[in-house]
């Protein structure tokens, strides 16, 4: 068993880390809003942690706080995520349809150009030698694991209370929800900001995990990958992001012999899932279960 964790431990930690990004896209999707902003907030959260972890200005803080510097970084990233999330989400979410997706793509691009031009973020080279929280990278599961559990618990609880029902109402029919007195914009912004905050904190945890941080963490391609986790896993299931991340993170390992052509196959998987499994893996499983149950009960 210990051998298993030595071989696959890093893969498992990465899957949980990526699943967190998937979940951050799942939040706005609960209210029917497609956002590609997560990776921008992830990038910014990582820069917060990287700068607080390496910049001389924060040296006295680090000396005073020791290990507790890490939670402080998460807190700063969280605040940044919430404030920026409201600033980005509010103008775009007054509108219906595709506008949020477009505004968030713009946000990711602006963040990218901005960090490349900020001397404190290290330009194109980025920031190196971010202090480690643990000796072994596998131990980062103690960062990502609890955050993942917390995020899953929030999703699970939300679906059971009025707020979650309001999200689903907006997702199913925004106009009808509005007519029934649901404050559609406020609900959309709430769902969006939850995702932004989660992505920012995930970024702040990932900077020490990856040891270096640069603008390549926040590209458009990466945000598409996060979206793919959710849609391939199943955009209507709580477990979808985890399953999607598990599949897509391990796929390159499995397909390693294919080398250069494996990204082509990634695209093929994306198209095939959209066409043949429009509800994702979890949706496909549910449909299969229904069919099997119907078969046993003898109901045609």
């Amino acid at each position: 068993m210990s051998g298993f964790f030595e071989n696959y431990g890093f893969l498992i930690v990465t899957i949980v880390q990526q699943a967190l990004l998937g979940l951050s896209i799942y939040f706005p999707l609960m209210a029917g809003q497609l956002s590609l902003a997560s990776i921008g907030f992830y990038s910014l959260g990582g820069y917060v942690a990287a700068i607080m972890g390496t910049h001389p200005y924060f040296a006295p803080w680090r000396a005073a706080l020791g290990f507790f510097m890490f939670p402080l970084e998460w807190l700063f990233a969280l605040i940044l995520g919430v404030v920026l999330g409201i600033a980005v989400g509010y103008p775009a979410l007054r509108l219906r349809g595709i506008y949020l997706a477009l505004a968030t793509i713009a946000f990711v691009q602006v963040v990218n150009v901005a960090v490349l031009n900020m001397p404190v973020a290290g330009g194109a080279v980025g920031i190196f030698g971010i202090p480690q929280a643990f000796e072994s990278r596998l131990d980062y599961i103690w960062f990502f694991g609890p955050l993942f559990a917390l995020a899953m618990f929030v999703v699970y609880r939300i679906t059971a209370i009025g707020r979650g029902l309001a999200f689903f109402a907006v997702r199913e029919d925004e106009l009808a929800a509005g007519a029934m007195g649901v404050r559609t914009t406020a609900n959309k912004v709430t769902a969006f900001v939850l995702g932004c905050a989660l992505a920012a904190v995930t970024g702040a945890m990932s900077a020490p995990f990856l040891n270096t941080w640069n603008a390549r963490q926040g590209t458009f391609d990466a945000s598409v990958t996060c979206l793919a986790y959710v849609l391939i896993g199943g955009s209507r299931s709580l477990w979808g992001p985890l399953f999607g991340a598990a599949l897509l993170v391990s796929l390159p390992e499995v397909l390693r012999p294919l080398k250069d052509s494996r990204m082509i196959l990634n695209g093929v998987v994306l198209v095939a899932v959209c066409v043949y499994l429009p509800q994702g893996l979890m949706g496909g499983l549910a449909a299969l279960r229904t069919r099997l149950a119907a078969g046993r009960g003898g109901v045609a």
């Binding site: 250069d260 082509i264 695209g267 093929v268 994306l270 198209v271």
Partner: peptide
């Protein structure tokens, strides 16, 4: 077209077109 025929969620068309873009771009690189 395959998605339209199934009456799928318009968001999926966005992802499937991104998938095709991924195929084209990486095919060129290959």
């Amino acid at each position: 077209k395959p998605l339209r025929r199934r009456g799928a969620d318009p968001l999926l068309a966005l992802v499937s077109s991104l998938g095709v873009a991924l195929i084209v771009v990486n095919l060129i690189q290959y």
